[in-house]
Write a protein that binds this DNA or RNA. Structure first.
Lengths: 226, 226
DNA sequence: GTGATAGTTCGATCACGATCGAAACAACAC
DNA sequence: GTGTTGTTTCGATCGTGATCGAACTATCAC
């Protein structure tokens, strides 16, 4: 009966406690999987899936499929701004929640992700390559520039002559801990092999943890500074 | 299980169609009685009373008792900004009301947002003031410069001597249609009053639409050119 | 005082939507 | 291939909350 956009629709979406928890978890700017969001919201995966499909349908969250995972994140800064404004209103009425505990810090630092480097080190390497235009993002695609290829090969990283569609040279991979992109694809694999071959780092038995030696650590940071 | 304010609470409040209708009706800036709001929302007075008490309890609306009437209005500009932001999100998902009539273009052009001017005209005034350094953005804050104050007062806009922290002279408010900022705060209110008092524009009854006369339109564009 | 209008409280109803169990589907590991 | 894990679909349940009828209070007009 009224003019104007349907405020009630999206407000009702955010109004459900489970969905609100999910959105607040995504307010950190990191991408989370459906199961993680289920745990954050305190509901079963089925319920989580149901809610996430609704949120995505309404354009509040965007999703990125990666293997059997689905990484969800806030759609854009407008949604974040809306949630922020709502937090402000909620604050002054005196409604707050409780807090949860952290997890293992060892895995967050450096670990293997399938066959490439993940964790803080992985993210830093990725950012460093991007900052120096050795790596360029092209929408969903990721490309190694000519300078980037020379840089890596001169360093000692072995790269194939040409890349195929089936196994791309570079892929971005969302990080489990940092929730930022890091380098996957053949180049990612080669880079990790390089670190291990040089003795800069070694894998911890029966774990995904990768331990950098003191020497390897300083060499890494010298090369992949920001 | 999470930290942070309980956004689900207020979102759920706005999420009910009846309450959302009431709040949108109050976006016109005028105070409405409980029965009028009941009619706006399309519910019985009992239901309206129930909803209004909840909205008041949450601090979304304020009320002024006058005789046997109770006049409700939006609590403050923060609530208005929240509703405006939500309209913006709802717009882009195509979640418009069933009855999205011919009023919409008029709303985009010029409308009242709580107590100040929004729409294309509001955005243009804002931009024009910014371009001439009459208005300066300082992070989240917004300030009227000395030149800006003289400009407005010489024009005939009435401004208070000093501004308080509680009721800032200038605030920016995000526009749902233009997705740009426009001027809120006391200065925004005074500016709108000026337009109405001068007869440059008038309010359309029972709507948020503001109609500029031909003369008022040319005067406006002469002053707030870019 | 009586009557009329504005608003509220109570109680009961009723529908919508959140939730989970079970099972299917998808991607990986081996 | 088999087994495991992440995600989704279906179906059914169940609780919460919106809604209105009826009765009640408050203010005004006379």
């Amino acid at each position: 009966m009224k003019e104007g956009p349907n405020i009630a629709g999206i407000a009702a979406l955010i109004g459900d406690p489970a969905r609100a928890n999910m959105l607040q978890a995504l307010m950190t700017g990191v991408a989370l999987t459906a199961s993680e969001l289920a745990q954050e919201a305190g509901v079963t995966p089925q319920t989580s899936s149901f809610h996430l499909s609704r949120l995505a349908e309404a354009g509040l969250v965007s999703l990125r499929k990666q293997g059997r995972h689905k990484y969800y994140s806030l759609a854009d800064s407008d949604v974040a701004a809306l949630l922020e404004a709502m937090s402000g209103i909620a604050m002054r009425t005196g409604m707050t929640r409780v807090r949860t505990g952290p997890k293992e810090p060892a895995l967050r630092k450096a670990r293997v992700c399938y066959n490439h480097l993940a964790g803080e080190y992985g993210v830093q390497a990725y950012d460093s390559l991007l900052a120096r235009d050795f790596l360029v993002e092209d929408g969903e695609q990721l490309h190694l520039t000519g300078d980037g290829r020379s840089f890596l090969t001169e360093l000692g990283v072995v790269l194939p002559e040409k890349e195929t569609k089936r196994r791309p040279l570079c892929k971005s991979c969302l990080d489990w801990s940092a929730r930022r992109s890091h380098l996957a694809g053949i180049a990612g694999t080669s880079l990790l092999s390089f670190f291990l071959d040089q003795g800069w780092a070694k894998r911890v038995e029966g774990s995904r943890i990768i331990e950098f030696s003191r020497d390897g650590d300083s060499r890494f940071h010298a090369i992949f500074s920001l």
